[in-house]
Amino acid sequence: MADIALARAPETAREIRHARRLSVGAKCAMPVAVLLGIGFLAPMVAILAYSFATPRSFDVFRSFTLENFAGLFDPANTVWLSFAWSVGFALFTVAILAVVAYPIAYGLNAVFGRWAGLISVLFVFPLFVSENVRLYGWVLFFIKNGVLDGTLRWLGFSGGPEVLYTPGVTLFGMAYTYLPFMLFPMTLGLALVPRDLVDAARDLGAGRLLIWREIELPLAMPGILIGMLLTFVLAVGATAEAKILGGQSIIVISHDIEIAFTYSQNWPLGSALAVVVSVFIAALTLVALSKLDLDRMLGRR
């Protein structure tokens, strides 16, 4: 109400200027700016501030120390191992998904025809169910006397393999969870390869493999890279797979961060860890994005 009154009868010259300066674009951006400010920027600032606070305290904004970071880079600290597990598993996940998703993406574009829509929906469908619920579903599948084990026994085999609570099944869980995030950017990337160019290359004598290497892959690369980046960023921060499927046979970095914030009540240490991981991922993302021609990908050449 006060705002409306102000707009009708601005009282001071400064307010008039202010009202004029705010363009339509700025006004439209207002809601999202507020949301981002509160929901995104504020926690980031808080985390950043906490990472410089006295360890094991809540003296945020009142103390400044580099002790938290010094602790992380102390050779005696084993946090680097969690970090290595996270990055390593994320890289593995990306590699597995690139190989698994490419044929599906190709099929969605060129083979499945009128079934493509339905198949896409089937790949999206699991996203409607909470990740944890789906992972517990896999636990029931792999667990001793579970779906796999029980079925094999019933069929007269000696029982299923004991894969649950191993690093291998953690990787499986990650590949399973992040498949759609690789598949859809990749499908989009492949869809942007004009049919004409493939025909032209073939007409100029090129065989399947050469067309794939010279035309399809380079032209689909923006989509593939976006898919890889997305899955990598998500997989580095993954924690549920290692916890639920992997049974903490490996500790990932986000688990360490969680522990610092909960059991050990050491918010400054957790914040410092979070900052290091964020900076690492942000740097990687920026490098990858700088190599991407988004304009071309969106057909705005």
Partner: peptide
């Protein structure tokens, strides 16, 4: 087409 001694200049040029 890749075995034919013919070549097409596309409408889109491709």
């Amino acid at each position: 087409p890749n075995r034919r001694p013919t070549c097409l200049v596309f409408q889109s040029l491709a």
